[in-house]
Design a protein around this nucleic acid. Sequence first.
RNA 1: GCGGACGUGGCGAAACUGGUAGACGCAAGGGACUUAAAAUCCCUCGGGCUUGCCCGUGCGGGUUCGAUCCCCGCCGUCCGCACCA
Length: 886
Amino acid sequence: MTVLLDGYARTMRSERYNAKEAEPKWRQVWNEHDLFATKNDDPRPKYYVLEMFPYPSGRIHMGHVRNYAMGDVVARYKRARGFNVLHPMGWDAFGMPAENAAMQNKVHPKEWTYANIASMRSQLQSMGLSLDWSREIATCDPAYYKHQQSMFVDFLKAGIVDRKTAKVNWDPVDQTVLANEQVIDGRGWRSGALVEQRELTQWFFKITDFAQDLSDKLDTLDRWPEKVRLMQRNWIGRSEGLLVRFALAPETTPNGDSELEIYTTRPDTLFGARFLALAPDHPLARSVAETNPELAAFIEECKRVGTAQEAIDKAEKLGFDTGIRAVHPFDPSWTLPVYVANFILMDYGTGAIFGCPAHDQRDLDFVNKYGLGNTPVVCPPGQDPATFTVTDTAYDGEGRMINSRFLDGMTIEAAKDEVARRLESETRHNRPVAERKVNFRLRDWGISRQRYWGCPIPIIHCDECGVVPVPKEQLPVVLPEDVSFDVPGNPLDRHPTWKHVSCPQCGGKARRETDTMDTFVDSSWYFARFTDPHLADAPTDPGVVDHWLPVDQYIGGIEHAILHLLYSRFFTRAMNQTGHSNVRDGEPFAGLFTQGMVVHETYKASDGTWVQPSEVRIESDGSQRRAVHVTTGAPVTIGSVEKMSKSKKNTVDPDDIIASYGADTARWFMLSDSPPERDVIWTEEGVQGAARFVQRVWRLVSEIAERSGAADGAAPTGPRGTAVRKAAHKALAAVGEDVERLRFNRCVAHLYELANALQEQINPTGPASEPGLAEAFREAGRIFVQLLAPMMPHLAEEAWQVLGQDGLVAQASWPKLDPSLLVEDTVTLPVQVNGKKRADVTVARDADQATIEATVLSLDAVQKAMEGKPARKFIVVPQRIVNVVV
RNA sequence: GCGGACGUGGCGAAACUGGUAGACGCAAGGGACUUAAAAUCCCUCGGGCUUGCCCGUGCGGGUUCGAUCCCCGCCGUCCGCACCA
């Protein structure tokens, strides 16, 4: 039904956009045209946009919606801009939850995982993401992990893999190693059992070999958040110091050791030394403990202190004097006691230190407990060296050396250098006494897990030949499917036949490695595999992977700021070194964006249990918001806004939202309001606002379609047509710039502004016809829909059709900007007198200073504010502001 | 403890990084249409008063013609690391 208005046929406003019908329709059209399948040999410039692939938990959550909506905006925008866009999706499909499900529900991990993948795939597809599903991969697929095993073998041959014993968190109930984050207050997160420290032989990736490069190249990652780079830099923890060999007084060493090597970053404080300290598991400590039962007991006690952070926090500094005396490197007559101390770590430096209490808080706490005293050797600026003392607080700031003989008066840096220089050139037993050494906090990456649902480590243990890699032609080592989870421990280890094999070298009886790889390995190269996901004979085709990498824009959660990103950076380097790729600088991700969480109010019933948002109705009496239970009507307490979590029941199911509002509404809301790096609050009002805008766009587009019917290509000349064109091109420029910078909330605002501006010109305030107005509307409608398309792709296709445009908006090139429409002929400048705004002045855009001065001075408001005083100074900032100083 | 980020209306936030503070949205209030509701449309919306001005970006100083933005000192919130010598 139509009515006549202003001479135009007009669709009745009651006609609503039906997302439920339109969305599946357009998705089918995209599919049929294979719109988002990417060819590797496409000649256009490449753009690789990737969101962190999900763990297939079974359901997507709002965090996924936000993450994938952002990536999709970038993908669709870049496609319109003429790039050959790679935008793939896959599944981080190995991991513990599948095994937990197996234990609890008697369902096989594989079955559980693939069922979850199927349901999550269909959920993601309902979002209308422009993904190349033909490249889909799952890390639990032997076709994927085969290549991971093959690279493990290559890394092993290249010396990037190591096998050594390491201390691990052992859960005695589940009989498995736990990651640090799985130990909560000293107990296993699942079993609740007290976690033990065990020494196990483990496989390691030698990430420390790359520590220097991983640290250095952070400087080149200028499209990463500064915060993430800093976190990685701290994690790698590069420090420059000195290894110093202290001679031991022979009469004090029970087992004939003659020296002790320590590591320090403060060689300048050597004259402030009061003691040396060893880690409890330092070889010298162990050897002395063999003949000293008291020390042995002390060492045992140190081990019992848990690894839980709380325990470390509260632990008092404890030491045990071994009786050994070390000789000061600059004074043969000066000896220092050697302690074993609980706060010294064996796996950093040499596991031994010298303590300078005046300038290190830990050492100060220690000497204060054992009465060893301290000597300040750095005097803070402005302090009198004669009176400067340290009692409870160590001084670690700048200053000049004191009490340090030949170092006195030097800066800290100069003193460090002088000590290093002197000790380097001095030799004992033909070796220099000291050596400069760069140390890293970063440890090698232990990848062994006593788990079933992971990538098997392709190794065979033979009594004759030792550790033998599985020959490549025998890969993949496939997980056996006939396993049970009714007893704790690793099903691979207790499988009746799987681990029994013959040695590839000698043919004798041998055993498979039953550990599987940390799932972080799986996610460390998936982005490379996406470039040629079905390649059968190799993990990657170097030509292809080098074409696509680095990922131009990677988007994901800040929770992966360290591990996943660091491991991936290591992996690309290792792949480069083993000929699998030749990615520049070994950097996999050129651009990184970490998005904020989706948070929601929490609700609690009177009995203290959490209540789901869907069971809550919010009532408002104008000033106060109250919540009641939907069915019982009982009052519900509105709690704080928190990250959506199952335990607090403050989740909103994307399926429900898409079913009732459509995917476009969900996407639009997730992109609006908050800056993408910040948390966004999910509110019912917010979704409804987004849904209202969808309908508003629909009505607006219909009205534009009616008004542009008569477009004949004639250029608009009237004020309304010009206003329409200016609004459209302004939005075009702004949205383009903001998508490039991932400022989606501002894109949303620009589109609201454009909608408002177009509406203003549609509402008839005068004669409807004006030369070229129809043409202006035609152009503006087209631009409006194209700007919307990356964010609300289904609605945009429907609108595109209503506007009578050819083809699909998903395939249309980005509109061409007319920069002349962005500049105004005249400009209105605020006028300040002594920095306070008093008037506005409208002048020609290119008006010279004299003209502006004259115009400004002629204004009554300015004259009044100047109170008859002469202008001392005239500040004119072109296009910005005028300030008169009197 | 160390390192970092952030504090702007009732709320989420803008402000082209030194140039009109509060764009855009949400909520709220008033009005129109309607038998009524929903939807839609129009108006108001930082605070104060003398309706023109004053105050206002966590607090206190400073630099500047001019400060949300730069500097110094506090207060608060959040995040990361946590005995790394």
